[in-house]
């Protein structure tokens, strides 16, 4: 059974953490995963870096560049993740842009994900129609969930279509924005979250973009099955001792 499904069945208020593979040091990928699990993360999104990440703000861009400069590639990443399942038990997704996947080969990519025990992917610039036509078969064959994003501007009809196509969770963007902004739940955002909740989708939802601390996390959890933190975590591990920065960052989410 898929680890993502299992997690959503047994737990509420799920905390998922995004970080960029190979950052701050190229060899940190697995250690960060271990530390995050140890300190209470429920799910991980490991970013494979891309040179032109248009959906990301300056912090994730900079971490991607640093990782690439240090030699990160998809090949290196899958090598690093070879014994992933000896180190962590929680669900792991890979997140990145479509071009590196295309060059690696979709089939090879799915194979490699399945082999190391990755449970799903988030590829923001992969359009739904392309996914349906060229990727879905391969993803499903390898038991990989593909997660789609929706924004306050996404029409209901399209949300239903996405709900039908995906089998992990749906990624609710708090607003139309690049990563690294702050969550503000004004009336229109609350209305949008409420609208989604009322749609009774078959997939659980996670709120992302703008979640940075306990307060914004709790707020997001009141509207969805959990929330995703990216930029704030990447910023927190920029310098210093990894064990310390991860445990400090995760402290406020305990209990």
């Amino acid at each position: 059974m898929n680890r993502i499904k299992e997690l959503f069945e047994k737990k509420k208020n799920i905390l998922s953490i995004y970080y960029t593979a190979g950052y701050p040091n190229i060899s940190d990928t697995i250690e960060i995963a271990e530390l995050l699990e140890k300190h209470g993360a429920d799910m991980l999104e490991i970013g494979f870096p891309y040179s032109d990440p248009v959906a990301d703000g300056p912090v994730i861009q900079a971490s991607s560049k640093q990782s690439l400069d240090q030699g990160m590639t998809l090949k290196v990443l899958f090598e690093q993740l070879k014994d992933l399942r000896k180190h962590v038990k929680i669900p792991v997704l890979l997140m990145g842009y479509v071009n590196p996947v295309l060059q690696f080969g979709v089939e090879n990519f799915c194979n490699a994900c399945a082999e190391v025990g990755v449970d799903g992917c988030i590829v923001p610039d992969l359009p739904m129609v392309e996914y349906e036509e060229f990727y879905k078969g391969c993803f499903e064959e390898h038991n990989l969930s593909n997660v789609f994003l929706i924004t306050p501007q996404t029409a209901d009809e399209r949300i239903h279509k996405i709900d039908g196509l995906t089998n992990g969770f749906i990624y609710l963007l708090s607003s139309s924005a690049t990563t690294g902004k702050n969550l503000e739940v004004g009336d229109t955002t609350a209305q949008y979250f409420g609208r989604i909740k009322a749609m009774n989708l078959k997939n659980p939802t996670m709120i992302g973009f703008g979640i940075s601390d306990r307060k914004t996390f709790d707020k997001a959890c009141s509207y969805a099955n959990g929330a995703i933190i990216g930029t704030a975590f990447v910023k927190a591990i920029e310098n210093g001792n990894l064990e310390e920065s991860v445990s400090n960052f995760m402290k406020e989410f305990k209990g």
Partner: peptide, 21 residues
Amino acid sequence: GKEGVLHGSRSILMQTNDGQV
């Protein structure tokens, strides 16, 4: 270049084997 995706369309672009522009 090789075939790939840049700035929203599939085309030909200069890139590394790993798909970095």
